[in-house]
Structures are given as structure tokens and as C-alpha cells.
Design a protein around this nucleic acid. Structure first.
Length: 593
RNA sequence: GGCGCUGUAGCUCAAUUGGUUAGAGUCCCGGACUGUCGAUCCGGAGGUUGCGGGUUCGAUUCCCGUCAGCGUCGCCA
């Protein structure tokens, strides 16, 4: 070893010892007569001193040293002069007086230094990721990620889960997200697909009798990115046999409790709260509500039906909805201009026709530019139903169910931030359960699977498959942390009759089902146990546990919004010979399109 | 694909209503300094204002296009 210690471990107990350290030069403070150097590695920073008492050779070798050079120093650990301790670093009580200094490798002048005061723009950070990853906060996050994954694996192992690796090169099944395709050289014209999830393999593991499966699985989806979405991401993928929803939820409940305790030192009460999908949509307008704060949606459609205010009345009469949320103390935050801002926000992003609002005056009455359209009694009824208090702002969307959900959800999220309605450090775990089996396909006159086509309906809803599929609820459950979908799973269909029924509703005849999933359908005939599972988005869990705002900071080498890697410049144009070998010819790009 | 924000020195930012030679801090280079830890002090270098076009006597500023990063809607079973 080139070093005897790391830069984060020396303290008063080492005083008098001769040690060697290796690391990167974080900062040089040159006083002419002597130099102080902050030497950094991932464990911390140690101040090293070279002055007139140091050997001439050491003075000589330190002369050209610049920030981010990699050096090795040997020296004696000494206490600092009285009053010169640095309480900001753990090694701040000591310093290393150098007797030998060796440059292990110089560094060209970096475009930015890792711990500079102002964070460089993200594109620069991504381009020079090796520098960015030297930053303390990135190192903390990657350590956090490692600890979380280890804790998940330990928990899984403790509960008899077997870790199995499934293929990365698989079969394309054009359901759901777009596949990343990989051309086959051996079979020109044919393609593998990278897994969107190991879904089918893990079900087959159940058929094979492996009872409890787990995998830290890389997954790929060729869809557009978001702050919380990467094209390549990591799931904790699990599957269990002889279980129902409660069993799977129970396993994850326990895992979250342990993670919260081990990683954050937080005590989480079990069972984690559950609400149904219908409830979530009615109360929060979304299937992954942030439940760190209240502000639930209030339905005013009944009142709207009675008023002469045409805007509300016509919406209510046409079977649509007038729904509201109350921004507590919102008047202080949102002036007329602020409300205009919110109006624009819901109109432009969600196609809402408008945003109606009322201020609650000191005496509890509602005031607004539209107030004159209402009877005093109607205003009083709105005030009482929304339970709005003086200083509050009532925000109302009159629109279709879908638009009101989206707009009110977004408004709620926004006022939660603007009005600081929750402690950003708080962690809230919950479940949303009983998702609908199907959602209606806007284009064709058919149903789409909300999860995937192997999701089992609730036992109690089996009849509805025949009578009213839209009302059929699934044995599906999503884990929600602070308003993010951190994971989701289902109990699978193991009854071939039910499976046929579901395929039928999805517009899949026996033949096309056989073509797409034949291997799974075959496997299910060979003694498939009742089974179900879940997948947790590890990147998102890390983001949430780390209190971070985007998923890129949780991934060592993330992609940009256009799905490129700024450091390696992937994807890239390949050699013509590679394409020829694969039997691929690129279509001419048509500029007229 | 739509909408929005951003792009000025290596880095982080400023530049009044469209007006002289585009500034500051930091980094970098040179010098001074024996206790700093955002060291300090002196001096210096450093610019295709992302790129292309337009309007104008004059554009960092206004307009159009384009590229890149970010956010968001669509999309993500």
C-alpha cells in the first residue's frame, strides 16, 4: 500500500506517528515561508504542512504542485498550534508535517474544481463526470446508494429471497414502453430487446419453484426523460409464490421500516397507510399523492348545479366537475398577478379552461371578481364546504374529471412548495392499492392494461370482467414516498381462463397472445403457483432518502434529457462495416419531412 | 412532438430604455509574505456574448431560425 492511512482518519491519537497519505490536492495556501495543502480523498481532508523545517527535497518537490494533482506524502502527525484547530473537518485537530512528497500524477488545469463555491452547470459536470464525482455531495450520494442496496439485499436474504440474474438480451414484446433494440449478427434482420423489466423471467422463476426471487435489475425504456426518470434505471425486482397482496406489501413494509431506521434513523410505524386508487384520485387528483401535507380536493359540483354562474353551471350540468383546493394562508403569497400566474400554469400545461378563485376575508366571507355571480348563501355554502379560513385562497377548477384531477394535483403540489406546507426532511411512506385493471384507449375502441396483461383482478371483481370491465379493480399496489411512485407490483393471474378473458378484453386473440407471450403462457400451464411481486425504483429511493431533486445525482453516469452520455458521447455513429455485418442499412434522412 | 427557462472570460455571474473600449469574483500565470484553512497583498493574461440570419446609424439587449442543457405536457403496460 502506498498509504498507511486515509485522509479522513488521523486524529490526536496518532500524534507522533510517522504516516503516509495519498490523495488529491484540494487547496494550496502558500505563505512564502511555508505551504499548507488540503489533501483530499473520499474519506476526508487532512492538512499537510511544508515549511522551513521540512527537508529541502520536500520543498523542492512541492514547488510545481497544483490543485487536483495526485500526491503521496510521508510525515509526522503533529498537534496544531494553540488556536489553530479547524473544527470544520474531522482531522482538524492535527496536521501532517511532511518529510517526503512524491507526485504520483499531475493534473492538467481542470475546468472546475470539485468543491468550488458555485456548482458548475450540469452539462459541464456531466462532461467531466470524473471531476464532478470527486465532489463531497456526489460521493455521499453514491455511498448512500451503496448502503441502501446493501440493506435491501440483506433484508431480502434474511427473508429467504434468492438472487437470480436474468438476461439483458431478451425478446421484444411491444407492450408498454418502447424497447431498446439490439441487432443480431448471427440472425440478420432480427433483434433482441433490452428488458423493460425482468417481469416474465421472474414469473417463470416462480413456475420453476424458486418461491422467493430478488434481483437488483437494470431496466431500459426508450421514452422521454424527466427529473425522476432515466432511460436506463435500476429496480429492486422481487417475486413471491403462494402470496396475496397483503403478503407482498408486508414484506416491503418491513423493508421500508428497516431502511428508514438504518439509513435515516427514522422510526416508521407499520403497517404503512393504504388508500385506494379511487380515493387517491378523488382526494388528491393523482395516483401518487404527496401525503406529507393535507390540502385535499373538495367537490363543489353540487353547489355549482344550483348557481346562476354560467361557467360553473354549464360544467356541472354537462356531467363534469367543479372541484377546489384551499391554499392555507394563500393570500399572502399570491397577489392578483400570482393568481394570474397560476391560471396560466393550469391552462398551458393541463388544458384547463380557467382558474376560479375566492379570497377569504377577515369576516369569513368570500371575495373575488366572480363573487357577484353568486348568492350570498351560495358563497357561504362554498366557504363552509371548503372550510376555508380568513387569509386562505380557494382555487377552483371547473372541467372534466381528468383535467380537474391534473390541474388540482399540480396546483396542490405547487402550493405545498410555495407555502412550505411540509418539512422537506420528513419521509412519508404509503400505498395506493386497487388500481383499475384497464384504462380506455383513446384511439381504438378497446382497453389497455393499466399495469401489464398478467395482472390479476380482485377476486370480488371477477364478475365485472364480463359485465363492466371499466370497473374491474386489480390486485395492484404502488409504494408512494413523498409523492413519488417508488415502486409498484401486482398479483399475477395463474388461472388460464381468467387470463384468456383479460387477453380478450385487451383485444388479443389466442393466436397473437401466443405469438407474444407463448413461452410464458406455456410455462403457466406447467404447474404455476399463485404468485405476485413488486419492483422498487432504486434510483428514486436513493433520491428520496438523500433528499435530492433529480435522479441524475443518484446515478454515477446518467444520461441527459436527450438520452445522451455527455462524457462518452454515446450514442455514436458506428463503422459502416459494423452495420454491414449486422445486415443493417440506414434509411436516408428526408429533410422535407 | 408541444410549451417554458437558460446559454456573456476556464468557472459562477453582471451589463440601466438598444448606445463609448462588455465588467466583477474566482480560476490561471508571475511576484511578495512563517500559521493559513473562502489565506492576504501586488501585477498580468484571459471574450466569435452558443451558432446562423434579420431589424437598426448602432444588438449581449429586439425578431426569426438552429444547437445544447434543464423543467414540464404528451409519452412512460
Amino acid at each position: 500500500m502506498l498509504r498507511t492511512h486515509t485522509c479522513g482518519e488521523l486524529n490526536k491519537e496518532h500524534i507522533g506517528q510517522t504516516v503516509s497519505l495519498c490523495g488529491w490536492v484540494a487547496k494550496i495556501r502558500d505563505h512564502g515561508g511555508g505551504k499548507f495543502i488540503d489533501l483530499r480523498d473520499r474519506y476526508g481532508i487532512t492538512q499537510i504542512v511544508i515549511d522551513s523545517t521540512s527537508p529541502a527535497a520536500a520543498m523542492e518537490s512541492v514547488q510545481p504542485v497544483r490543485p487536483e494533482w495526485v500526491i503521496k506524502v510521508v510525515g509526522e502527525v503533529k498537534t496544531r498550534p494553540a488556536g489553530q484547530d479547524n473544527p470544520k473537518i474531522v482531522t482538524g485537530e492535527i496536521e501532517l508535517h511532511v518529510t517526503q512528497l512524491e507526485v504520483l500524477n499531475p493534473c492538467v488545469t481542470p475546468p472546475f474544481v470539485p468543491n468550488q463555491k458555485d456548482l458548475p452547470n450540469e452539462d459541464l459536470r456531466l462532461k467531466h463526470r470524473y471531476l464532478d464525482l470527486r465532489r463531497e455531495s456526489m460521493q455521499e450520494t453514491l455511498v448512500l446508494r451503496s448502503r441502501i442496496i446493501k440493506a435491501m439485499r440483506d433484508y431480502s436474504a434474511k427473508h429467504d429471497f434468492i438472487d437470480v440474474e436474468t438476461p439483458i438480451l431478451g425478446r421484444s414484446t411491444p407492450e408498454g414502453a418502447r424497447d431498446y433494440l439490439v441487432p443480431s449478427r448471427v440472425h440478420n434482420g432480427q433483434f433482441y430487446a433490452l428488458p423493460q423489466s425482468p417481469q416474465i423471467y421472474k414469473q417463470i422463476m416462480m413456475v420453476a419453484g424458486y418461491d422467493r426471487y430478488v434481483q437488483v435489475a437494470r431496466c431500459f425504456r426508450d421514452e422521454d426523460l424527466r427529473a425522476d426518470r432515466q432511460p436506463e434505471f435500476t429496480q429492486l425486482d422481487m417475486e413471491m409464490s403462494f402470496v396475496d397482496s397483503d403478503d407482498v406489501i408486508g414484506i416491503i413494509d418491513g423493508m421500508m421500516q428497516e431502511l428508514a431506521k438504518d439509513i435515516l434513523g427514522i422510526d416508521v410505524q407499520l403497517p404503512l397507510p393504504r388508500i385506494t386508487y379511487d380515493d387517491a384520485m378523488t382526494r388528491f387528483g393523482h395516483d401518487a399523492p404527496d401525503m406529507r401535507f393535507g390540502v385535499e380536493i373538495i367537490d363543489l359540483t353540487d353547489i355549482a348545479k344550483k348557481t346562476d354562474f354560467r361557467v360553473f353551471r354549464s360544467v356541472a350540468d354537462s356531467g363534469n366537475f367543479v372541484r377546489a383546493i384551499v391554499a392555507p394562508g394563500g393570500q399572502a403569497k399570491y397577489s392578483r398577478r400570482g393568481i394570474d400566474e397560476l391560471t396560466k400554469f393550469v391552462q398551458e400545461n393541463f388544458g384547463a379552461k380557467g382558474l376560479a378563485w375566492f379570497r377569504v376575508e377577515e369576516d369569513g366571507t368570500l371575495n373575488s371578481t366572480i363573487a357577484k355571480n353568486f348568492e350570498t348563501s351560495e358563497l357561504a355554502e362554498i366557504a363552509s364546504k371548503t372550510e376555508a379560513k380568513p387569509g386562505d385562497l380557494v382555487l377552483i377548477i371547473a372541467d372534466t374529471w381528468e383535467t380537474s384531477c391534473k390541474a388540482l394535483y399540480a396546483l396542490r403540489k405547487r402550493i405545498g412548495i410555495d407555502l412550505e406546507l411540509y418539512d422537506p426532511k420528513e419521509m412519508h411512506f404509503s400505498w395506493v392499492v386497487e388500481f383499475p385493471m384497464f384504462e380506455h384507449d383513446a384511439e381504438g375502441d378497446r382497453w389497455n392494461a393499466m399495469h401489464h396483461p398478467f395482472t390479476a383482478p380482485l377476486e370480488s371483481d371477477l364478475e365485472l370482467l364480463k359485465t363492466d370491465p371499466s370497473k374491474t379493480r386489480a390486485q395492484a399496489y404502488d409504494l408512494i414516498i413523498n409523492g413519488y411512485e417508488a415502486g409498484g407490483g401486482t398479483i399475477r393471474i395463474h388461472d388460464s381462463g381468467v387470463q384468456q378473458q383479460v387477453f380478450g378484453l385487451l383485444g388479443l386473440d389466442e393466436q397473437s397472445a401466443q405469438e407474444r407471450f407463448g413461452f410464458l403462457l406455456d410455462a403457466l400451464k406447467y404447474g404455476a403457483p399463485p404468485h405476485g411481486g413488486i419492483a422498487l425504483g432504486i434510483d428514486r429511493v436513493v433520491m428520496l432518502f438523500g433528499g435530492l431533486e433529480n435522479i441524475r445525482d443518484c446515478i454515477a453516469f446518467p444520461k441527459t434529457q436527450k438520452a445522451t452520455d455527455m462524457m462518452t458521447e454515446a450514442p455514436n455513429i458506428v463503422e459502416a462495416t459494423q452495420l454491414t455485418e449486422l445486415g443493417i442499412e440506414l434509411a436516408q434522412k428526408d429533410d422535407d419531412e
